[in-house]
Design a protein around this nucleic acid. Structure first.
Lengths: 197, 197
DNA sequence: AGCGTTCTGTAACGAGCGCTACAGATGTAC
DNA sequence: GTACATCTGTAGCGCTCGTTACAGAACGCT
């Protein structure tokens, strides 16, 4: 069997990327089907046949966003020290938020704040995605502690949560119009507070 | 002239407080007129006669939110040192975010992330409100620097922006389900990074 | 060729949105 | 009392939302 019937005339992955862009910019509720179909270059029935419905499409877009982000972060974990890793992560994130083409925010943060009542399950999905990134940092910090890079009274989980919080705060600032310089100042002060032995 | 015609049968301030609660919990787009009127205990025409339209109602609710918040913060500025002020501010904000009845977030942060295309002017209004709070901290830090509480190479504006960012990040975490203990850990690490001389 | 399967666009569904026309109710001014 | 001004609820406006019925088009299979 396999490929029976009329084949689809659009690239599902490219269409998903377009949908991701719309969701990222407007949030879940702010993105309408008509705007999505227009950006994706397909008609509503094609969208529903390929992605189920609006919520499933959002989840797919979210998975794609998280996947790309995870891949970018993964590289940084190889930095020789946890401190260097964190400094580079700040740089990366600043570039990401300040980049012209992008919406100036993290999609996961935006989704968390604007999910509202649009589905408790959706909020859980978002929470899980954020936790994935945080876990990467936790593990890097555990490794750092084993290497004696961190004071004894610092819990890797707490420290990871703290720096994730700063990053999430920076996303709010960026969405509010903060420029590259302001973001860099924030990152500098965060790194200045790095726990000394 | 003055009071001609039939007098209104509801308390406009109490109705505004109810509207604030709905907007706070659901955001601007997520709050429907029917939900608002139901919570406020009035009918749509009364709402429009008293508050203009949905956007103006939101702005009024926002002003009220910011006013209360500003008043709470103002007290803390009297703390003897900037460091003590900041520590107390963290406590206050944690209580605020962890309080049962409240939505677990800052309305200004939520509004900033979920405004989307619902009006550029609205985003500016939100931005101005956030700036007001930040200015309070900047001035307290300026005063602290004059008192030699802060290192020479620390700019009060930068430091205020940094701590505001942490607070905004904490709002994101709280919205994502963080409990009091997690928030306290974040605040502790932020205060641990307080710039030493 | 003919059939079954799947994709395509058009066009529309019911529901909810923000908002308001309207008529009745309730106050002041004369 | 009569006239005017304002608030009140009902009922509905036009619109957009997410979603789908439907008919036609494009493929593999026999």
């Amino acid at each position: 069997m396999g490929t029976m019937g009329r084949p689809r005339e659009f690239d599902a992955e490219k269409a998903l990327d377009k949908a991701l862009d719309v969701f990222w910019r407007n949030g879940y509720e702010g993105a309408s089907i008509s705007e999505l179909t227009h950006a994706m270059g397909i008609s509503p029935p094609s969208l529903y046949a390929a992605f189920g419905n609006k919520e499933k499409l959002f989840r797919s877009a979210l998975d794609r966003y998280a996947e790309v982000r995870k891949q970018l972060w993964q590289e940084l974990m190889k930095e020789p020290t946890a401190r260097a890793m964190m400094a580079r992560l700040f740089e990366r994130v600043i570039d990401f938020y300040a980049e012209e083409g992008n919406p100036n925010c993290c999609m996961l943060v935006k989704g968390t704040m604007s999910s509202g009542d649009c589905g408790e399950l959706l909020a859980q999905h978002l929470s899980a995605k954020r936790a994935e990134s945080e876990t990467m940092i936790v593990e890097r910090f555990r490794q750092a502690k084993a290497n004696n890079e961190l004071p004894d009274d610092i819990d890797p989980e707490d420290l990871a949560r703290y720096y994730m919080t700063v990053l999430e705060g920076m996303s709010v600032r960026a969405a509010g119009g903060a420029d590259r310089k302001e973001l860099r100042n924030i990152a500098d002060l965060a790194m200045r507070g790095w726990p000394g032995k």
